[in-house]
Simulated scan of single mutants.
Amino acid sequence: MVLLAGLAIVGLRALTDRYDRTVLREQLLDPRARRDRTDLDGPLNYLLVGSDARPGDSGPDHRTDTILIVHVPAGLREAYLVSVPRDLLVAIPASANGFGGGQDKINAAFEHGGGGDAGARLLSVTLARLTGIRFDGAALIDFSGFRKVIDLLGGVRMCVRTEVRSIHTDRVFRPGCQRMDGAEALDYVRQRYGLPGGDYDRQTHQQQLLRAMLERAAENQLRTNPVKLDQVIRAVGGSLTVDTNGVPLEDLLLALRDLPSDALRGVQVPSYPQIIDQVSYVMLDNGANGLFEAVQDAGMADWATANPRWVTRL
């Protein structure tokens, strides 16, 4: 949904019309995780899920690589990207496809639900039970589509702080700001081994990629380049499944059109690693220090000020 906000700067009805014809629409939120009514004049909470699985796919090993809660306070002039650790130990409810429920890493909820929209629903209710947050919508992102969008935008500028060697390719990412194409950027933001903060650094890099994409979309002046605009919309639409909780897409895009990329804050959930029965998990630190309550009660600005360790200005 943050990517949609970046594209919304073009302010064109053609964007909405084109997107409406290409995007997949599904019920990604379980009723127990869905806000009864979305008010675009109030604070908004969206669930953003990234997976290698194509939208609509189902089957084993479809765990989610990225889980973000996007909190936009009333006024829609800033946004907090709350990264949920994928190894967070949680109670996952039973699912309709035969999973009986139990303790597991949160990124397994998508798989236990069967992947696709059903997996997203199980993940959403798992998060709702953990956090108390009810969502205004959700988006399921296919990473192959993200690669296409980054390439169509001419790459993104990413600043590498610590040298890291990819576990997927022979790439070595060296310190310094550099232009990355889609394959390079997605490879970089999925690394966690060899980084000082491990998965926490990976979360920050994924948040930084979202900002870099917003900035690049603005630099490309998509409103004056209809050919590239059409290409980007097709790539975005083909890589997303969305649930807007009944809000017309045009209204949502117009509401988010003025959200600036420099007003994004990256938030990590207060937590710590723990080994249980020789398996590495992440545990909530002191109930996440009131983070989830701050999201629910529109108190994120105060929480961020009181908890600078867990907040990054992107």
Rank of each mutant, 00 (worst) to 15 (best):
A74C: 09
A79Q: 12
V82G: 02
E78V: 00
T64D: 03
A74E: 14
D65S: 12
A74W: 07
R77P: 00
D57L: 00
I69K: 02
A79W: 09
T66E: 06
V70K: 00
A79N: 11
L81C: 09
I69R: 03
P60L: 08
L76M: 12
T64H: 01
A74L: 08
I67E: 06
V82E: 03
P73Y: 10
D61H: 14
R63H: 13
A74S: 15
A53F: 03
G56I: 08
I67K: 03
R54I: 00
G56Y: 04
H71Q: 12
G56Q: 06
G56K: 06
P60F: 07
G59R: 11
Y80M: 08
L68D: 03
A79P: 08
A53R: 02
R54S: 07
V72F: 04
H71F: 09
D57E: 11
G56M: 05
P55I: 05
D57Q: 09
D65Y: 10
G56L: 07
R63I: 13
D65A: 13
I67F: 02
T66W: 04
D61Q: 14
P55L: 04
G75M: 13
H62A: 08
S58P: 01
S58I: 00
I69E: 02
G56F: 05
G59K: 12
P60Q: 04
H62S: 06
A79R: 09
S58A: 10
D65Q: 11
G75A: 10
R77F: 00
R54P: 01
L81G: 06
P73R: 13
P60G: 05
A79K: 12
H71E: 11
E78G: 01
T64F: 03
A74D: 14
T66Y: 07
G56N: 07
H62T: 15
V72H: 04
L76A: 15
G75C: 11
R77M: 02
L76C: 11
I69D: 01
V70H: 01
L81E: 07
R77V: 13
L76S: 14
